[in-house]
Computed example of a mutant assay.
Amino acid sequence: MASLNSAFPFPVPRPADPADEVVREFGPLLRIYKSGRVERPLVAPPVGPGHDAATGVHSRDVDLGACSVRLYLPQAAVAADGAGKLPVVVYVHGGGFVAESAASPGYHLFLNRLAAAGPALGVSVDYRLAPEHPLPAGYDDCLAALKWALSAADPWVAAHGDLGRVFVAGDSAGANICHHLAMHPDVRGHAAATADGTAPGRAPLKGAVLIHPWFWGSEAVGEEPRDPAFRAMGAGLWFFACPGTSDMDDPRMNPMAPGAPGLGALACERVMVCAAEGDFLRWRGRAYAEAVAAARGGALEDAGGGVELLETMGEGHVFYLFKPDCDKAKEMLAKMVAFITAP
């Protein structure tokens, strides 16, 4: 910061404040200062809920205590007045566990469009972020939000949500959390009830959509670089966000690690994985899709076990948030809608 002195009509530099020294930095996502100040340079100012004129979707925020959710109700549900219930999509935003929110402009735009295109009832989770709230806080918040949605405690969910068609969806770190949710014993033990209150024993989640999932591991898969230094660098933000982790083969970061819970336990009928050609996580997403299909006794090429893989050529990590109007973003949204609305 500079000051002005009447004798010297030009800025006079002040001595540098040692507290403004940057001590940790993770690209454009997060910057930590010596004073303890946390800066998230990439995050745009939040936008509020309300009526979206472009899609006709209504949204509102619900406080759940430690976290909150933003609900999205399409015009189709309002017009039907509860006559036909909609699939419920519990969406978990990305941002490396340290950035973004349900109120970030890119996510708000995407959820409005997803809710309208489905149509579907959206439940976008605003979970606590590291480093202020290290993991597992984010995992815990998203589990609480999913259980809240499954309870139909909110009037929008009760009136318009089909609890036999609940999906979890998320991108990057959010996709990682979605895997965690689908593997959690509390979710696996939640039986979806029929209209007469009986439990049919089917999977509590109709499906999971993992967009450019952030998984990693000590051993490379596919065409990932095998250099140990690169692998350690790829896990740096994970160690920072989850200081209690064992290593990069922690099952929360590497669901295919030796000793990790079997992927056959995923509490969902169908799985869709999205990957992008220019994303360094591309091979990890493909390997995960292949592993889930194999755990279900099928092959990915044959849509084994209800597993689909969408690979977008010529694009990078979470491109649909940065270029929401490009043709490939529209294609990805259409494929996601088809997955959610399939019988």
Rank of each mutant, 00 (worst) to 15 (best):
E269R: 10
P131Q: 00
A149R: 13
A275P: 04
A208Q: 15
G306C: 03
A303K: 15
D61V: 09
A294S: 12
H108F: 03
R70T: 03
P324G: 02
D249N: 13
A144R: 11
G306R: 07
F110N: 11
P105A: 01
M253Y: 06
Y91Q: 12
F10P: 02
L111V: 09
L121M: 03
P105T: 00
H160C: 05
F215A: 05
V22C: 02
G278R: 08
H212K: 00
A267F: 12
A153Q: 12
E224C: 04
I340Q: 08
K206L: 11
P243S: 01
P28G: 01
V23F: 03
E224D: 05
E301C: 11
L146W: 09
A103K: 06
D17N: 15
C268N: 11
A199H: 15
A54M: 04
N176R: 08
S218T: 14
G48R: 10
A267D: 08
R113K: 09
M183Q: 15
P343Q: 14
R282C: 04
P15S: 13
L263G: 11
S124M: 07
F167L: 11
G197W: 15
P261D: 07
H51A: 07
G306H: 09
D162E: 01
A175K: 06
D196F: 11
L210C: 07
D52H: 07
P255K: 11
H58Y: 09
L281N: 08
G118A: 07
W214T: 01
D249H: 00
A287I: 00
K34Y: 01
P87F: 00
L310D: 12
G48Q: 01
L237A: 08
A193S: 14
E290R: 13
M1R: 14
A173R: 09
A173F: 07
A80H: 08
A182D: 06
P119N: 05
V98R: 09
V271S: 15
W214G: 02
P185S: 03
L29Y: 06
L150I: 13
T55Q: 03
P74L: 00
E277Q: 13
P134S: 00
A117T: 12
G304D: 08
A77D: 00
P136F: 01
I177N: 09
G304E: 12
E269M: 05
Y288H: 04
V92G: 14
S3C: 09
M332A: 10
L111H: 03
T194S: 15
G84P: 00
V187P: 13
D126Q: 04
F322D: 13
Y288N: 05
H93A: 01
A182C: 14
L150G: 06
S6Y: 10
D227N: 15
P46W: 02
G94H: 02
P131I: 04
L135K: 05
E277D: 13
A342C: 07
T194Y: 14
A257H: 13
N176G: 07
G285F: 01
R296N: 13
A158C: 08
V168E: 05
H93M: 07
A103I: 01
A260V: 11
